[in-house]
Amino acid sequence: MTGWRSRALALIWPTLGIAALLMVWALVHHAYGALVMPSLADTAAALQRIAASGALINALSSTLLHAVGGVLLGISAGFALGLAGGLIVPLGAALAPIASIILAIPPIVWVVLSFLWFGVGGLGALITVAITTLPVIFAATLQGVRARDPLLAEMATVFRLPWRSRMTRIMLPSLATVLAPALTTAIAISWKVALTAEVLGDGSGIGGRFAEARAHLDLAEAMAWIALVACLVLVVDKISLGSLRHWLQRAQPASSSALIEQPARCAAPPAATERRC
C-alpha cells in the first residue's frame, strides 16, 4: 500500500509539469490562432488519423532503428574506447583530442557527410547518431576510469578478485555516476540527430513525416508527430535509464542528514566472550 502511495506521489509533479505545458500550448493557440499553434483537439485528431492510417508503425520503427540503433552503436563503441583509453594511458591521451574534435563538430555536418558516404537511406541517419553520441560516452567513461578509487582497486588485488568481479562489482558501479548523465545526454542527442537526418533525408521515419506535414502546411499533423516524439523520448528514457537512476539513488552515499540513526545495540559489537566461534 505504502509502495503504491509513494509511486503515485512520485507521479504527481511530473504530471503537473506536463499539464502546465499543455496549458501553455492551449493559451498560445487561444492567443495567436491555429496558424501559429493548432488546438489540442486538432492535434489529438491528427494523432488519431496517423494511428489509424498505419503510417505510425512504419515511421516509428524507422525512427526507433535510427535513434536507438545509432545510440546503442555509439554507446558500445564509446564505452569500449573509453574503458581502453582509461586503462591504457597513452591510448586515452591519443583518443581524447579526437573525441573533443568530434564533439565540437555540429551534428548537421555529420548528417551531410553521412549522406555523402552512405546515401540518404536509413544507414546514414544511424551512423550519424552513432558518431555524435560516441564521444559523449567516450569522454564520460574515460573520466570515470581515470577517477576510479585506487584504494578499491588495491582491495580487489589483495582479495584476488577475478577480472569479472572487478568489472561488474567495482568498475561498472563506479562508472555509473558519470555514465548516467552522459547516457541521458546521448539518448537526447540521438533523437535530435535522428530526426534532423530524417527531415533532410529520404522522408523515412517520424522526421520524414514531419517534413511532409510541414510541406503541406498541416500544422496539426506536424505537432502530432512532435508530440509522438516527446512521448517516445520519455518512454525510452524511462525504460533505458529508469532502473539505473533508481539504483544510483539507493546506492549513493547518503548525506549526513540522511544517515540512519543507529540504535544503541548497533553502535557497538557484542562482548567478545559472547561471540566465540
Binding site: L152, M155, R169, I170, P173, S174, A176, A251, Q252, P253
Partner: peptide
Amino acid sequence: FQEPRLLPWS
C-alpha cells in the same frame, strides 16, 4: 586496511 575500503554501492 586502515580505512574500511567498502564498496559504497553494495
